[in-house]
Design a protein around this nucleic acid. Structure first.
Length: 968
RNA sequence: GCCCAUGUGGCGGAAUUGGUAGACGCAGCAGACUCAAAAUCUGCCAUUCGCAAGGGUGUGAAGGUUCGAUUCCUUUCGUGGGCACCA
């Protein structure tokens, strides 16, 4: 009986589905375990082999945990709102709902083919009204909450209103608009608009006019993490700053808690580092400098107050509000000119030319409060208006940018760090002892920081201050294919819908073009936006809205009364294992952590970190192949037309060797071409070096290349033209070039998992993906090695069935040697699986099967247990053989074999004995020996004596179970 | 520029706590079976000297700690990723 993987896999997949073996209950006596994949955006391109890597890993771990006796939740769904579907709609007119539907069907079919154990009954789609109803509901929770700065948590906005009505605003916070605090009486006297405006400044989801990243080409606003190097992450379109009314999430309030939460979760160091960098917390001081001859103060932010005596100039951002007020009459023209120049530059130019130093002196001077020194105030682009106070004190001896600026404009530099500053470049050390620094003289810089801040606070000219780089997250998009905001604008007041009015369904549109004045497509639907009491919000929520809480919906996917029943979220609790790529480090992962914290603060769920452990699968890069063409210069035909009227010059492909060193190989290429033309085309070939343009590399479909050797016939029919000539290497092979690149259709380096499943089976595919290398490492795809894994499964099959004899397994009792092989494997597989070392686990299986084949072990007792171990990795073949052995039901309900250490214990062992690091002999020793016994035996051993040449061993190192080293 | 990874045969990679480096697989070479092919099986496979036994050298490079380093430390180079005027 043969290993007919196609039949086996089809039948078992059908059976799993019809028997609903993967259905998960929220009630169980077993301990729970939640395994989650980052759900995909269902793009039109379908899956390539890079996508399933993480899914296979999570599937293996889920099945393993289930076998280990856990109630495992392992769901899947689709992040189905988003830009590409809408772009596609604009191009083709197809409704995004339709294309999304179609793409999801393709994705599901592809996923099912690989044999994942998803409970599809729990599938969620972010674009379903039954789902986004709750996305809207959570948005309203955010809208109706504020961040209480004393309790450091979210509370209902009604609590704040009550406070205002009874006590007014606390002195430190006050009216965020005027900056003044107000009494209860004042509050009650404010107009409704004024009150709402004040409240809007505290809501966690709020609307304000602000500078946003506007992308003209996409016709929408983008979040900071969606802009990369001044262009949009998707499509690479230019992005500019624009003032618009937008929705935001007040993520900055949670900066500290997001930072602290990282200590409680198991993420990789690099992932934590990325999030920390993004939040960008810095501690320092904010202090006021008097301005000579004016009654205004200049407020600066610094992390290095210890360098206060090294301040040689001040720099304020060009947009700073004081600029016009402090500019002297003489400098007025220069400053205006500079401001004009700054305004003319796009964000992109600014970023691209970051190294060029520009700036302009305002003519004003600030006064150093400690020594009365007059400090010139400059404006320059390199100081950002949006960070800190938009003004800095420049210390050229300690800061690189300040140093370069001082040099460029010939500003004298004060050295306060002695020999640490060499005059050539700035030194940002904190280890120097301060000089020329008044009351700080003689102090180590790192100690002086605290001393300086204390003094500043004592003098009442400044305060300690923490700053964050992170900004509030933009939350609206001028787009169609997203969640509509459940908000109605009325007289400038945002009025939320009631919970029972949800979902606010996305209306149907005929056109996907933008609305008037930068509004989204929804603004075009007059009937929909205009209501008796006001006008609907026309923007929609961004892609990350739906994905910020989907892990909760899986727990209770069909609940129409609430987003997730508290009982369900208490039972499943945190995601125990989350698997996905690093690309979501600062987007999705930060936002979902924020949403979880807010829901926790408001008492809707019982934990504030959504993901306990995160594993980032590495990217599978494509291994592109290249062919090299030699082309005749356009229009040139080297043959006499009259003689050969039908002949057109073929495309010439040269093998890699000739591309690498074309100059030196021209003659050889010419000879080979001449020969080919004479023999195959029967045409004379008068070659001129000049008519050919040198080899050009072009991508060739990896599927027509075997390793690096081109399958010429397949290439001709698939990509090239029939009339092509191949200049091969001397052995007749055409060798392609190789380069590792990101997998993409345009590079012809994608490999479709369906094809591999058809050719080798899903089990082979799953194991091979794991076998490629460590899960977290990115690695190039190479189809070639898949044969080896396939061979292993066939070999496993032959332990059960012989092609001729049929079934070969027996019921007889297993020998010690056979059990030893099994238990060695049990131990190793368990260790490997637990530490996500799936590649070594596959190796372990191969070794086990090889050993069992070597000792001709066909004992049911051994094989049955091996199958259970194998189930997570290759579920189809395991199920089939399990049932062939006469077992009922799914193997997933079998008992995971436990490792019996007694079987592996030996009484004695051959130890290698090395003398000064070189292995000289082997010695058989019993395992219960102690260090002293070994020393004695070694001292008496004849061979060792011989190698020691009469000297006594200085030291005997006995590493239990490993080796003995004798040192002379 | 700063931060974080990472570097091992022709290739993917293994070595879990400092203990015989190169497991397992691919590719390659030789052989068995076969009319032949496929499939399967056996042996070889870091490098160098040697007929062999055996020896030298080897984990990007240079140092260091140690009886012993792919593993720890310092310096340096290459690759990948993140951040980038954040004061």
């Amino acid at each position: 009986m043969e290993y007919d993987f196609r039949k086996i896999e089809r039948e078992w997949q059908e059976k799993w589905q019809s028997d609903k073996v993967y259905r998960v209950s929220n009630e169980s006596d077993k301990p729970k375990y939640y395994v989650l994949d980052m759900f995909p955006y269902p793009s039109g391109a379908g899956l390539h082999v890079g996508h399933p890597l993480g899914y296979i890993a999570s599937d293996i771990y889920s099945r393993y945990k289930r076998l280990k006796g856990f109630n495992v939740l392992h769901p899947m769904g689709f992040d189905s709102f988003g830009l590409p579907a809408e772009q596609y709609a604009i191009e083709t007119g197809q409704h995004p709902a339709e294309t999304t539907q179609k793409n999801i069907a393709t994705f599901k079919a592809q996923l099912d083919k690989i044999g994942f154990c998803y409970d599809w009954d729990r599938e969620v789609r972010t674009s379903d009204a039954s789902y986004y109803k709750w996305t809207q509901w959570i948005f309203l929770q955010l809208f109706n909450s504020y961040f209480c700065n004393t309790e450091k948590k979210a509370r209902p906005i009604s609590v704040l209103v009550k406070k205002y009505e009874t006590r007014g605003a606390m002195p430190k916070i006050g009216d965020p608009i005027s900056g003044k605090h107000f009494t209860a009486d004042e509050w009650n006297g404010f107009s409704k608009q004024r009150q709402e405006e004040i409240l809007m400044n505290r809501r966690l989801a709020f609307s304000k006019y602000g500078e946003v990243n506007w992308c003209e080409a996409l016709g929408t606003v983008l979040a900071n993490d969606e802009v990369v190097n001044g262009v949009s992450e998707r499509g690479g379109h230019p992005v500019e700053k624009k003032k618009m009314r937008q929705w935001y999430l007040r993520i900055t309030s949670y900066a500290d808690r997001l930072l602290e939460g990282l200590e409680t979760v198991d993420f990789s160091d690099s992932m934590k580092e990325m999030q920390k960098n993004w939040i960008g917390k810095s501690q320092g001081a904010e202090m006021d400098f008097a301005i000579k001859g004016k009654d205004k103060k200049l407020k600066v932010y610094t992390t290095r107050p210890d360098t206060i005596f090294g301040v040689d100039f001040m720099v304020v951002a060009p947009e700073h509000e004081l600029v016009t007020a402090i500019t002297s009459a003489e400098q007025k023209d220069a400053i205006e000119k500079y401001l004009k120049y700054v305004k003319s530059r796009s964000e992109r130019e600014r970023l691209a030319e970051a190294k060029t130093i520009t700036g302009c002196f305002t003519g004003a001077y600030a006064i150093n409060p400690f020594d009365g020194k007059e400090i010139p105030i400059w404006i320059a682009e390199y100081v950002l208006a949006g960070y800190g106070t938009g003004a800095i004190m420049a210390v050229p001896c300690g800061d690189d940018r300040d140093f370069k600026f001082a040099q460029h404009f010939n500003i004298p530099i004060t050295n306060i760090i002695g020999e640490y500053f060499n005059g050539e470049e700035a030194n940002a050390t904190k280890e120097a002892t301060l000089q020329n620094s008044g009351f700080l003289n003689g102090l180590l810089m790192k100690d002086a920081i605290g001393v300086a801040v204390d003094k500043i606070e004592d003098m009442g000219i400044g305060i300690r201050k923490v700053n964050y780089r992170m900004r509030d997250a933009g939350f609206s998009r001028q787009r169609y294919w997203g969640e509509p905001f459940p908000i109605i604008w009325s007289d400038g007041i945002a009025i939320p819908l009631d919970a029972d009015e949800l979902p606010l369904e996305l209306p149907h549109v005929d056109k996907y073009g933008p609305g008037p004045e930068g509004e989204g497509p929804l603004a075009n639907i007059i009937d929909w936006i205009n209501l008796p009491g006001g006008r609907r919000e026309t923007s929609t929520m961004p892609g990350y809205a739906g994905s910020s809480w989907y892990f909760l919906r899986y727990m209770d996917p069909h609940n129409a009364a609430t987003f997730c029943d508290r009982k369900a979220s208490d039972y499943w609790n945190q995601v125990d294992l989350y698997i996905g790529g690093t690309e979501h480090a600062v987007g999705h992962l930060l936002y979902s952590r924020l949403w979880t914290k807010v829901l926790f603060d408001l008492g809707h769920i019982g934990y504030e970190e959504p993901f306990k452990k995160l594993v980032n699968q590495g990217m599978i890069t494509g291994s592109s192949r290249f062919v090299y063409t030699l082309n005749p210069v356009f229009g040139y035909n080297p043959f006499e037309k009259d003689q050969y009227p039908d002949f057109s010059f073929p495309t010439v492909y040269v093998s890699k060797k000739y591309f690498d060193n074309y100059e030196n190989n021209q003659v050889e290429v010419r000879e080979k071409l001449e020969f080919i033309f004479k023999t195959e085309y029967q045409v004379p070939f008068e070659f001129s070096y000049n008519f050919i343009t040198g080899p050009i590399s072009i991508h060739v479909d990896v599927n027509v290349v075997d390793g690096v050797e081109l399958d010429i016939n397949a290439f001709k029919s698939k990509q090239g033209n029939k009339n092509s000539v191949f200049v091969t290497e001397d052995d007749g092979k055409y060798i392609c070039g190789v380069e590792t690149e990101k997998m993409s259709k345009s590079k012809y380096n994608t490999v479709n998992p369906d094809e591999l499943c058809n050719k080798f089976g899903a089990d082979t595919f799953r194991m091979y993906e794991m076998f490629l290398g460590p899960i977290e490492q990115s690695k190039p795809w190479d189809t070639k090695g898949i044969e080896g894994v396939h061979r292993f499964l066939r070999k496993l099959w032959r332990l059960f069935f012989d092609d001729v004899k049929g079934k070969v397994w027996t019921d007889s009792k297993a020998s010690d040697a056979e059990l030893k092989v099994l238990h060695k494997t049990i131990k190793k597989i368990e260790e490997d699986t637990e530490r996500f070392s799936f590649n070594t686990a596959v190796s372990t299986f191969m070794i086990c099967v090889n050993e069992l084949a070597d000792i001709k072990c066909h004992k049911k007792e051994v094989l049955e247990n091996l199958l259970i171990l194998l189930t997570p990795y290759a579920p189809h073949i395991a199920e089939e053989l399990w049932s062939q052995l006469g077992n009922e039901g799914t193997i997933l309900d079998a008992t995971y074999p436990s490792f019996n250490p007694a079987l592996l214990v030996e009484s004695s062992k051959e130890y290698p004995v090395s003398i000064n690091g070189k292995v000289r002999t082997n010695i058989n020793l019993s395992l219960d020996l102690q260090q002293a016994d070994v020393e004695k035996i070694i001292g008496e051993n004849e061979i060792v004596q011989k190698w020691l040449e009469g000297k006594a061993p200085r030291k005997v190192i006995y590493v239990k179970n490993k080796m003995i080293n004798v040192v002379v």
